[in-house]
């Protein structure tokens, strides 16, 4: 089975301080000063992919893993890590355009790439990533390809005859389906939240394979690249104030304070629990 796992590298936004949230031209925010990381949902997706391969190989079926990311050369370090973890192919589609709020463009690129290489039967992606927070890419990849999509997937296991057993969260329970590829799997809050770490020896032995670098222009037409968010344009951006106010509830007696707390703040909220 051929699996393509797509991932995105994002800035660790928790490291930004309040004064760093400055909106620049074109609603850009400079986050280049903070560390990068694999988008957490995508990190789960990559680990789940590796776990699947381990299990499938134990059952004697061959699995070929590819990893795909879209962005600049800086991301190659992550792709090398994936080689060290025994991904068979690591691909980067070079891009310098601002595609933060363009899941339509991103999903088109992925779908076109898949159509060209004709390979993967299974595409695994994290459900959302924390810059655009669009939460649409996996769904739209499925739409572009006309494949079914299982969202909120949390576990993928091999089943007989090239089938997959996929567990996914529904709003009121857990769905366990055995499905026939091709399919798109969108990873939700999976119990595996960390990607395993390759040893230095594996980095030396496997991490030096060449990364396949492709040009985004070959997968998306120029008109779309110039206007990637056609249909939903960003027109405003401002920081959200998360600071707690520490409002002291006044009253002359404990009873008064409790009354004040209950009637002004608690009563309505309790109803909603």
């Amino acid at each position: 089975m051929n699996i393509l796992t797509c991932f995105k590298i994002v800035s660790d936004l928790d490291l930004m301080s309040e004064s760093d949230w400055v909106v620049e031209d074109h609603f850009r925010i400079n986050t280049s000063f903070v560390k990068n990381m694999i988008n957490p949902y995508d990190e789960s997706a990559l680990e789940i992919t590796l776990l699947y391969k381990e299990q499938a190989e134990k059952l004697g079926s061959a699995v070929n893993l590819s990893a795909l990311t879209i962005g600049s050369k800086q991301l190659d370090a992550y792709l090398k890590t994936l080689y060290a973890l025994r991904f068979d192919k690591a691909v980067r589609i070079e891009n310098q355009h601002d595609l933060r709020f363009s899941p339509d463009a991103i999903s088109t690129v992925i779908a076109n790439y898949v159509k060209v290489i004709k390979k993967p039967e299974v595409i695994i992606l994290g459900r959302q990533s924390g810059v655009g927070d669009n939460a649409k890419t996996p769904l739209l990849v499925a739409e572009h390809l006309g494949w079914p999509c299982i969202s909120q997937a949390v576990k993928i296991e091999p089943a007989s005859e090239g089938l997959l057993k996929v567990s996914s969260m529904a709003d009121d329970g857990l769905v366990i389906e055995t499905i026939r590829p091709p399919c798109v799997l969108s990873i939700g809050n999976a119990p595996n939240s960390y990607l395993r770490i390759p040893t230095l020896k594996d980095k030396v032995n496997y991490g030096k394979k060449e990364i396949e670098v492709l040009e985004i222009e070959n997968y998306l037409n120029q008109a779309v690249l110039e206007q990637p968010s056609e249909g939903h344009n960003i027109t405003g951006l401002k920081p959200i104030n998360h600071k707690r106010q520490g409002v002291v509830i006044e009253g002359s007696t404990p009873a008064e304070k409790a009354q004040n707390l209950y009637h002004n703040y608690l009563q309505e909220r309790l109803k909603q629990l």
Binding site: I29, G130, V131, G132, D133, N233, I234, G236, K238, I240
Partner: peptide
Amino acid sequence: AVYSNYMQAEFKLSE
């Protein structure tokens, strides 16, 4: 909310 809930964005949907 975008940017992991640090920012509030406004979008115009036109289609």
